[in-house]
Design a protein around this nucleic acid. Structure first.
Lengths: 122, 122, 122, 122
DNA sequence: GTGGTCTAGACCACC
DNA sequence: GTGGTCTAGACCACT
């Protein structure tokens, strides 16, 4: 389900957070669906159970996840996501696009990439 | 010319590297133009001179900059940029676009952003 | 483990880099094996600890080494080596071979050298 | 005839020396043929005339060139080349071959490269 | 204990 | 003046 890279400079919890977010936005996990429990995910990734809540809390702060005490964590709707996250993504898109255009990439080719992303999810 | 943020998690040399790259791809520094000398830039940023070469070497490895001992460092042509840098940018673009689309952003609106980036440089 | 030559025109960090790469490709250091720590290697070579990371970073950029903060540096798999390194080696081989052939060296004799290199590692 | 690269770390005279040697071993300049005069070559490369004799002297020391006062410099036969140069080339070949084999390159493929180099010169 | 980063100051070769 | 290299010593986060 998730792939950890111990050679990655990012801490484990960030890799879990980013991996889960990727599964959410790719559609692999549908809105409302229950995420794996802390213990189950920790076991399947063979990491310390204390690491998982940190990832879940970060996603909850962003609005991607909704945790209910005693019941578990659930995937939220896209509309509930934090506005600052959206701005950061737009900035990331702008930055990559500007540099790619400077490198000679064709604007329409980049647009075509974006349109294709939308269709199939991943 | 550049702005450092000591609250930023990124090390100084990465901030310098990213800031200079931004100046290059935005057209603020033209290809072939001389970059500030190691000592001059260090002084203007009020940091140790040893920190600057690390940023310049990273940009040289990417193909954005060309340093010549005894003469200075110069902005390279876009065509000399490392292919792996281009792939990383495309991945960054894809990731941001996919998440934005999931958040409900309109594909054509994102395309319009990209087209505008190309025109005015910054 | 490594031998420095202060009469060599190459800077120390390049000698360390090339020496380590030699140990890796000769099989003296196996893939996955831990390399000496920055401080330990600096002490054993009687040089400043700051010089070692420069060699390790270069090998990491080539794909020969993987450094993990807090854990150490490790030998990578051959498959992870940068493609540009491979091209540079092929060019080096071509250049040496062409000149040797012009000097009257027999092509088959050179081939025999290459076949022998493969067998015993060093 | 020769291509200089001012971004290259090597001094100009080494680039001229290596470029001329390349022309010799590739067959572009035949044994016995007259090399361009110091002034002519300096003019065609748009560099200081003092730089050319340094390159010619180096090639003469290696045995690739034979200079006659008042008449000019001439390409020598392969057999006249310095033995140390040959040993250095063999070492260069060995080193590149060993690393390429470690990277998974096929020994016979490398041999085929060498055989092809011999046939057409360049 | 590990690698990563930064400061301070020095010397070199080259232009 | 330039970039390139090295030394010495320090602090940090993470294991």
């Amino acid at each position: 389900m998730l792939q950890l890279d111990y050679r990655d400079a990012r801490p484990i919890y960030e890799q879990v957070r980013d991996g889960l977010r990727r599964l959410l936005v790719s559609g692999a996990i549908a809105p409302g669906e229950k995420l794996p429990s802390v213990r189950a995910l920790a076991a399947s990734l063979a990491i310390n159970p204390n690491t998982i809540p940190k990832a879940y809390e970060a996603l909850e702060a962003e609005g991607y996840v909704c945790s209910v005490a005693g019941k578990g964590s659930f995937a939220a709707e896209g509309a509930q996501v934090d506005g600052r996250r959206r701005e950061r993504l737009l900035a990331q898109l702008d930055e990559a696009a500007q540099e790619l255009l400077w490198l000679g990439e064709d604007a329409e080719a980049l647009c075509e990439r974006i349109r294709n992303k939308g269709g199939n999810g991943k």
